[in-house]
Amino acid sequence: MERRSSLHLFVAALLFFAGSARGAGIQIPEGPGSNLVYAKCQTCHDLQYVADAKGLLPAQWKAVLASMNDYGLEISDQEKSTILNYLTTYLGPNPPPAKPEAQAASIDGKTVFQQSCATCHGADGQGQPGYFPPLAGNPDLFKDSLFPVLVVLNGISGPITVEGKSYNGSMPAFDHLSNTEIAAVINFIRDGWGNGSKASQMKPVAPELVAQQRNHALSPSEMHARRENMESK
């Protein structure tokens, strides 16, 4: 009987997540600031709005960014000017021809964190009650060496409970980040805010590990199943 009811729960969970949308996978031209757009804008809408608005005049992009402020976008003045520069250059009326972006000389996990993660998870990894779980002291970081990589590559949405508190935000996939950036940011998070003592027992994430996982996209239900599995270990 007990077995049967846990099966019921499992089936119910599958049904609940079966209808969840995959990431919309909308891409925007690469350029200085494009990563910031991926990181800041997809909390509230996917990037189809940004891509479809290609051709807006500079004054219009400025107005769009100002209105996003009203809808809850929190960015620093510097981030705002980087994003505005990107939008007016690459999605303005006269975008430059696409060219491969020169690789940044060095990649630093803290910078990636500040650009891509801090908006939702907080500058000190404290999270947002009810929406986004903290990264400081989050046991999910340490149960399974791979899980954080999967979260960054696939995103995760739907309700989760962390340390007895529930969260129901929605994290998009951050697969626009390079393997090196993803490895660096996970290592930075695993070392930060008092997480360090646990991190010392784990091998740092290598870019190759990220590369191996990149081609196996996981659906929201698969991500939750993976997380449940990890919890019970």
Partner: peptide
């Protein structure tokens, strides 16, 4: 097409839910 800013995105468009 409307959602495809570049060649790379065209391939992605097929994956849209």
């Amino acid at each position: 097409l409307a959602s495809a800013p570049g060649g790379r995105a065209l391939a992605q468009a097929a994956e849209k839910p």
